[in-house]
Amino acid sequence: MRRFAKDCPVETRLFAVLVLITLGLGLGTDTFFTLANITSLLNNNAVNLIWAVGLLVVLIAGGIDISFAVAASVVQYLAALIFGAIGGGNWATGLIVAGGLGLCLGLINAALIHGFRVVSIVITIATFNVFFGLLMFFTRGRNIYALPGWWTDRIFIFEYQSANGVWSELNLSVAIMLACVAATAILIGWTTWGRQLYAMGDNPEGARRAGVNIALMHGLAYGWLGMMAGIAGLCQVNIAKEVVPNALYGRELEVLAAVVLGGARLGGGRGTIIGCILGVLFVAVTQNGLNLLGISPFAFQMIIGAAILVAISTSNLDLGLKRRRAAP
């Protein structure tokens, strides 16, 4: 525990802040610590968390990806076409199709980044424009409502009715989210691939000299994020019950903020699943709390932005002082 606090100061501090906010909300409202509220928090943030762990892998490997949210929209659209063509499908084929399509889009990023030796931010901004532009061009911005029933039906993995009749339930997306988080945790924490990803983000030249297959690692990182993006896209449709081409536009930056807030280093080599979850939860709990406290929804974003600004300023200030003291 102490080692974790030393190795992951950002995560530890964020955890402390989150505990404080949670306690404050628990005391300040009588609705925060209810099963119904906590399950809805999880339902509402499953998609963001799937994206976040995917993005974490890319950040650890020393890259950045701006294109994943619109890639998820592309996957939704293509998947809707495919399900239409094969006449339905089910969750199993759905996950395979969405994950596979996402993987392909991620591999396009990886191929361009590796093939032309261009930094990831340039390529993913380009593919962001290509994905979104083509999607809007081909869909003409129209929504798709005619979706297979399995895709839009609610499936609960947990249901509970309290004494006063309030239903608490967890969506299938929460189960998928848990699986994605666990798979990512295993990938980055427990396999040799994970160590090679960290190594590449930490010291690309060192990794290359040690014989790490850089092309494979690029493919793994961006492919993994692409796959997560596709799966998250599938879940998002299950919640929204329609495919809206520009629904996910702009979500990438919020996910990025949450992941970096959770201690993932822009530039690579550092980042944890725990931090990633904490980062998403920080934003989610703050928003949930504002909601419960009856604050105008129009003020949510403003307060969250300010909260992140304060969080960055204080956390890095602390680190900055430490660094100065440690320096010769």
């Binding site: 040799t192 160590r195 090679q196 960290y198 190594a199 930490d202 010291n203 030249e205 060192g206 990794a207 000299r209 040690a210 014989g211 790490v212 297959n213 494979l216 280093r265 080599g269 550092r270």
Partner: peptide, 21 residues
């Protein structure tokens, strides 16, 4: 050097054994 600053001493020493496709 070509070492990995954010990895532990043990991981750095044993890293070459973790390389592979």
């Amino acid at each position: 050097l070509a070492l990995f600053p954010h990895m532990t001493v043990a991981e750095n020493i044993a890293f070459d054994g973790m390389v592979g496709n």
